[in-house]
Design a protein around this nucleic acid. Structure first.
Lengths: 245, 245
DNA sequence: GCAAAAGTGTTAATGCTACACCCATGT
DNA sequence: ACATGGGTGTAGCATTAACACTTTTGC
């Protein structure tokens, strides 16, 4: 039997198949706090609770393409740092049917995210309460200032937890932090982003040297304006030659 | 409309669904070389080429459960270190139909793997040629000693590459290396595993200190036997209190 | 001139690497 | 006794963290 004959006789309907979706964890750092984009569910199940933006994957659609479509359609955002995070597939994670979801992880500067979301009443940028110290603290919760934590739909709290863990893990050996900053930024802003994500503080000189020694950034001659004290120099991410993860 | 009513009216057949599979990258270190378990395909497509062991995910089956089933069924192995690796879903990765595969990553000591596989003619433990130096070397290839690289089916070469990258990345901040060793082992054996995986060499004293300082291992009073020189002390992994990663 | 934050130099501590040496076993 | 690889101590080097100090702007 040739391969062509084999393919012609193949029956794709022979097995029951699960539904496949992508869910998007879009993180940012605003006001010194890590925050995520959440969407209030309009339908059952978990109606009224808060969920990650997501969508089913089209039958001819790539996984990354589906994630980008969610970014564009559900959040109105054209481009952002995006990478696959983890796949969640517990048989009971959705009461409707078996849905396996491939979680994606996206980063955007706070101002761009706020602008994209400002006229969408179902979307919210929610600060995250992350248990700092131990590896095995409580779960990540999403809470607006001064309010109770928002109820999260499905297993989305767990997905959020994975995303934060990934962000923290990659922070100091990859350039992802710069996806949370505008094209030009001060070293103080970069340090604030690091401190917000890791929940630590660094000595200013030490942090400064570490960043410069990595060779990832270069000073533009320009300086920020508007402050009532010495203006800081603006840095930019140097273009990458041999891309690494 | 209540949630119960909503669920009753839900039509799970409304969208075309892809097939979902798991593929298993089972790695070991044998004779100082990193090696993977591969299975020669008996059917089209890619008949005769070599593939990772895999299976479709049952409609009521968890993802980790499916991976463990592959481990038990296709390789005859009861327990091994296992973690999810990455999900591959390019629309054209399988010529039969849309198949999204969740790749898993497993580790086993060489002797246990060899014992489980010895009477299976379709399985082979194949040493891996891994491009060491740069981040962006060529692809990983599987090659038996003195032969041409084996042809790998589907996108399985890419999956193998991801697995090796994951193993290397986690080697020095997690305990996964010990999944490649028997319960008791010498420090030299541990060093050999590290060197085989990373493709580097370490100074013996330096490596020794690093490992002991991590607090992961403890000496048993016992010593290996059979060598014609001073017998090395056998160490064991100390039981974990607060599990990480 | 004063306050506030940027930016830099020096020093101290830490961890890692390299080398040299000693130990135990079988032949 | 010797060869072989296990095991340990010491010294040198590098990197990193901490501190004190100087610089620049607006009020």
């Amino acid at each position: 039997m040739s391969e062509t004959e084999f393919l012609a006789g193949y029956d794709p309907a022979a097995f029951a198949r699960p539904s496949v979706a992508v869910d998007l964890v879009l993180l940012t750092v605003a006001d010194g706090r890590l925050a995520a984009l959440l969407q209030q569910r309009q339908d059952h199940p978990h109606k009224g609770e808060w969920a990650l933006p997501g969508s089913f994957v089209g039958i001819e659609e790539g996984l990354d393409d589906a994630a980008r479509r969610v970014l564009a359609t559900k959040a109105g955002i054209g481009t952002a740092y995006l990478e696959q995070l983890y796949t969640f597939g517990a048989p009971t994670r959705d009461p409707r049917m078996r849905i396996i979801t491939i979680a994606y992880f996206a980063l955007l500067p706070a101002d761009l995210l706020a602008a994209a979301v400002q006229d969408r009443s179902d979307l919210a940028i929610v600060p995250l309460d992350v248990p700092w110290p131990g590896e095995q603290g409580g779960p990540v919760t999403a809470r607006q200032a001064g309010q109770e934590p928002l109820p999260l739909a499905f297993d989305h709290a767990e997905i959020l937890g994975h995303a934060v863990k990934r962000l923290r893990g990659k922070l100091d050996y990859s350039r992802i932090a710069f996806a949370l900053l505008p094209e030009m930024f001060t070293l103080r802003a970069l340090q604030d982003v690091h401190e917000a994500i890791l929940g630590t503080t660094f000595g200013k000189p030490a942090f400064r040297r570490r960043m410069i020694d990595k060779g990832w950034i270069e000073g533009t001659g320009m300086r920020e304006s508007g402050a009532s004290f010495r203006p800081a120099e603006l840095y930019r991410l140097v273009p990458v030659v041999a891309p690494a993860t």
